[in-house]
Simulated scan of single mutants.
Amino acid sequence: MVVYIFLILLVILFSFMQTKQNKWYLFLMLALIFVVMAFRSFSVGSDTQAYRLLFFQLSYLKLSSYMQSLTTFFNSRFELGFILLNKLIYHFTNNPRWLLIIVALIVVVAVWLFINYFSQDVSLSLVLFLTLGIFADSLNSMRQILALAFVLISYTYIDRNKYVSLLLIILAALFHKTALFALAIIPLSYVKFNKKTIGILSVITLFIFVSFNTILTIFFKSFTSYSGYVDALSDGAARNATLLNGLIDLIIVIFCYMCGRINQVQGMKLTQYGNETFYLLLIFISFCIYIVSFRYSQLSRLSNYFSCVYLFMIPNSISLIKTPIRRLLLKYTVVIFAISYFITIQLFRPEWSRIVPYSMLTN
């Protein structure tokens, strides 16, 4: 865990030399993060070793049999985009190290585009990226982190060109089918976050929670490739993670909303792009997903596509504080909380991601 703490401290220390126009700070920090991700041992991350073995297996897969019908396409265990990526890499080299390198590169480029576009405090955004779960997922859930990377890029187009945003989300689904749920982001961009919206979402969440067994049975019959995840229904450890992450999402919504209210900023102008209450809505939706996830813990994976906006919502909310000393105190209170959360999880619940102990490449 020393490597992760050192990385976080570097992000904080180098931030004192950062200027608003200094793009080199973000580039340098993400380059360091890239090294940690790309050149880790295959023992780092609960799924990394499995993806190493899968790299060789997918190289022999015949695409003709995979594409023979839509049923095969949707019920296949692995998505077409991920299969093609593996086969493309294998065409040039049979070293699975390059799979980690390419995935790490895609992720850091996506994070760079996302943070650079939205955040008014890139150093705090990087700290949140490293501590609140996305970074841990990038060392573990390879297919979904690739999908999330393309969803992050799609956010930068949501107010500029919704067709590009749509295409990027569809591309994301070629790496993990759950990204199809991110298609909801586009129509949601027209919805305001208010009491009426909260009420409607609460009713929908309650309905899904109560009738979940019926919905899940229909889903497993339609998509048989996911039937192996049924064990997650009674996963007590996953429920603890769901509870904790759901509470964090709720705290973030309240925190961002109160920052805007206290400073009486009309329309919550947290960024120069679009309706910022839309991004609060997305985090609230993530909270609702965590509630439903008490019935089936694997559903919590869907929350990442919506909650990821906290990477800029928290820094931009803090930027609304008019008094510099209060703004600084609030920023470093968040930093201390985020680091404490990360250390606590890695010390007492390392099995959630298995990214500790960290070690560099062994081959």
Rank of each mutant, 00 (worst) to 15 (best):
S141N: 09
S41R: 01
L105Q: 02
F74W: 14
V44A: 09
L84A: 13
V108A: 00
Y117E: 10
F56P: 03
I33Q: 00
W112K: 12
T93V: 15
Y60V: 05
L85Q: 01
L105G: 09
T48S: 14
S119R: 00
L126K: 02
F42C: 04
I145L: 13
W98V: 12
V109G: 02
S65H: 11
F74V: 15
Q144E: 14
K87I: 05
F114N: 03
V35Q: 03
R52M: 10
S64P: 02
V127K: 01
F135R: 02
I12W: 01
N116I: 06
S69T: 08
L100E: 11
V109R: 09
Y117W: 10
N22Q: 05
L100G: 00
S64G: 14
L88I: 15
T93K: 15
A38L: 13
N86Y: 00
L146R: 07
F14R: 04
A38C: 05
H91A: 12
I145W: 00
M17L: 15
S43R: 01
S76M: 09
A110D: 03
F114M: 06
L9E: 06
M1A: 06
R97F: 06
S69E: 13
L26A: 10
V3T: 07
I12M: 14
G81C: 06
S64T: 15
M17E: 05
L53C: 07
S41P: 03
T131C: 15
L7Y: 01
F129Q: 05
Y4K: 02
K87S: 08
S119Q: 04
N75V: 09
L99H: 02
I102A: 14
V36N: 00
Q57I: 06
L32I: 09
F27V: 04
S76F: 08
S141R: 00
R97V: 07
M29C: 13
L139Y: 08
S64D: 15
E79M: 07
S65F: 13
N116L: 03
N94C: 05
L80W: 10
A147T: 09
V127W: 01
S15L: 10
K87D: 10
L10W: 04
V44P: 02
D137K: 00
T93S: 15
D137N: 14
A147M: 05
R97Q: 13
V2D: 10
F74R: 13
L146G: 04
Y60W: 05
A31C: 04
L58E: 00
I106T: 10
L80D: 05
F118L: 09
I101C: 04
L113S: 15
L28E: 03
L10M: 11
L70Q: 06
V35S: 00
Y51P: 01
M67L: 15
D47H: 03
N86C: 11
F34K: 02
V103L: 07
L124Y: 11
T48Q: 07
I5K: 02
S123R: 00
L80Y: 14
F92V: 13
M29A: 10
T131F: 10
Y4W: 08
Q68W: 07
R143E: 13
T93P: 04
L84C: 11
T48H: 04
M67G: 10
L58K: 02
T19Y: 08
F39I: 00
Q18M: 11
F114D: 00
D121G: 04
A110L: 14
L9Q: 08
R143Y: 10
E79K: 02
